[in-house]
Design a protein around this nucleic acid. Structure first.
Lengths: 339, 339
DNA sequence: TTGTAAGCGTTATCAT
DNA sequence: ATGATAACGCTTACAA
């Protein structure tokens, strides 16, 4: 049998409004009454219905985390859990819950805007620039609904958090230069792709600062996956030994895996003949042979920073949109440890 | 300004109960009225408040997915996203949402039982045998609250889904035997650990069926991680070449990574001198050198099967608790491809 | 087929 | 300090 605030009121011989005030620890209720009612609530094992509370309070105390089931998930997949835990670490203590929001871009009836936002099931939303379309973002802004993106966004001003990808490019390239590499290639990423452009800019900056030439043929465009890494390295190995790159910066771990495989098959010595450094630090990076020098991004922190920003937006809707760049961390391993 | 069912009723000149019936597509409403009201709803951009609906319907249409932030997450981490997507694939079409439930074992006030179950924020729960304590499971049963575990459970009868770990052990070991290996070791897992016992049983079964001896010193107990794999292989290499195992079955990919590393450092040829086969197929298994023969578990399916079972429990609470063993799949790669 | 009115379990506003 | 009563936005008998 379900027990409600009214049952408690009856048992305590008070009005249910009094019980409600006790639940919310109102200062207008005497200590004695509070004690008595609280005891009764324990005894009767009462927990308020959150749904009724929310209806009355007109707030769902719930935030949504966007994902797109229909989409390729290679990139965020291994990081998803950490991001989620990062978000929980900030919203949990504030009594918010988190519900998973599958976008359903193609089904107007199940689209998250309707299912979760318009139906007021959530008070705020965290997404990323891959699963939130410009159209949806615009709609959210129009509704003045609080949301934060993970990943840079520049179609119009919204709140976002991202890692400093340009700085990451500088860190990887700078490290290779310090190790004495002089002819550094960059593998992966499509032209016009924002993520690529930022990372590549950092790479170029470093070369320029070192007074080295930046040659277009040292950049291998393509989808940042294993086979692109593999093919790119094979193609650079077709040049004579003296004319090929002595190190590479990879857009992703997948690219690096492919590059590693190609180099190994061709008998190229890593790190002596070819240094390899890569963006992203998958849990597997330490297990390649040789282990990969890579750029660690703290995904827990990505989540918690996004959540902090979202809570701020929910609490102070009129504050301007903020952006935040988190710093990556260089993890040096053997793949760049030149003798 | 928020628009409600009453606004629609006014605009359409009908009672709000009529609007409600249209929303729920009641057969008692004439086609004409439905059309008219639906049009008005579009025009006025109306979406019902899910909170009010739930309060009235006395169901939250929401299921919880348990996780434990405070706990080591090595095992499920890479699979979490897939499991979640698997769950969503079955509950989504049924109009359920999913909220993340951090257990909070140590904080009675924020414990998920209170926060989510007793407060009726969710109608059902999916957890695993690592994050749900016996005590909590018992409490859920007492409340007759629907829940399903991922992972075998035998403290008392509950619904659960798991992979057939014994069969997995037979598949890996059987494969090694087919390849001609004859002295097979088993690395990882603590005595008394359910998961270990099941997997090890399959291994023993296979050896027995092949008429081979089962020797206690061929099993290396320990936490199933990288360093345990590494140490175990080092220790077996201390025996003379003729007296050491010619193949190993690993409890986890981490163990296999460590084993691979040790073998490589010692100059042992894989797969010729030592075959390696492992439970679990992390996304990185294909990228080791040589690529690892491993046991693929379909984590999407794990999630969807658990969700199917949960929906059944919610819909027919009186049905007996069910258990389901899913079949793993052997992925043969070079680490066991004996010449 | 449509309307009336009483819930659903809280909170919030006024009285007292 | 406590109590009555009207929200909150929807559903659901029961009437008409």
């Amino acid at each position: 049998m379900k027990i409600t605030i009214q049952d408690i009121a009856n048992a305590a011989n008070v009005a249910k409004s009094t019980v409600s005030k006790v639940i919310n620890d109102s200062p207008k209720i005497s200590g004695e009454t509070k004690r008595k009612i609280r005891e009764i609530m324990k005894e009767m094992n009462f927990t308020p219905s959150s749904i009724a509370t929310r209806l009355a309070k007109q707030s769902s105390f719930n935030i949504g985390l966007l994902f797109d089931m229909s989409q390729d998930k290679d990139y965020l997949d291994p990081f998803f859990y950490n991001i989620m835990v990062g978000i929980e670490s900030v919203i949990g203590p504030l009594k918010y819950e988190m519900t998973m929001a599958n976008v359903h871009h193609n089904d107007p009836d199940r689209h998250f805007l309707k299912r979760l936002v318009l139906s007021r099931r959530i008070d705020g939303l965290i997404g990323n620039n891959a699963n939130l379309t410009n159209e949806a973002a615009a709609k959210l802004e129009e509704l003045r609904f609080p949301f934060v993106l993970m990943g840079e966004y520049d179609a119009f001003p919204v709140s976002w958090v991202d890692f400093d990808n340009a700085e990451g490019g500088r860190m990887l390239t700078g490290h290779l230069l310090e190790q004495g590499y002089r002819d550094i290639a960059f593998i992966g990423g499509e032209r016009e792709e924002r993520l690529f452009e930022n990372r590549h800019r950092g790479y170029s900056d470093s070369l320029r600062a070192a007074g080295l030439p930046i040659s277009a043929e040292r950049t291998f465009h393509g989808i940042a996956d294993d086979s692109h890494g593999y093919e790119s390295v094979l193609s650079m190995l077709r040049s004579a030994p003296g004319e090929r790159p002595d190190a590479i910066v990879c857009m992703s771990n997948q690219v690096a895996f492919g590059a590693l495989r190609a180099a190994k098959e061709a008998g190229v010595q890593i790190p002596n003949e070819l240094g390899i450094a890569t963006f992203d630090d998958f849990p597997f990076s330490p297990h390649t042979s040789p282990p990969l020098t890579s750029l660690l991004i703290d995904t827990f922190k990505l989540g918690s920073a996004a959540a902090d920003m979202l809570i701020e937006r929910i609490s102070y809707p009129e504050l301007p949109r903020r952006n935040l760049l988190l710093q990556p961390e260089l993890i040096v391993r053997e793949s760049t440890a030149r003798a």
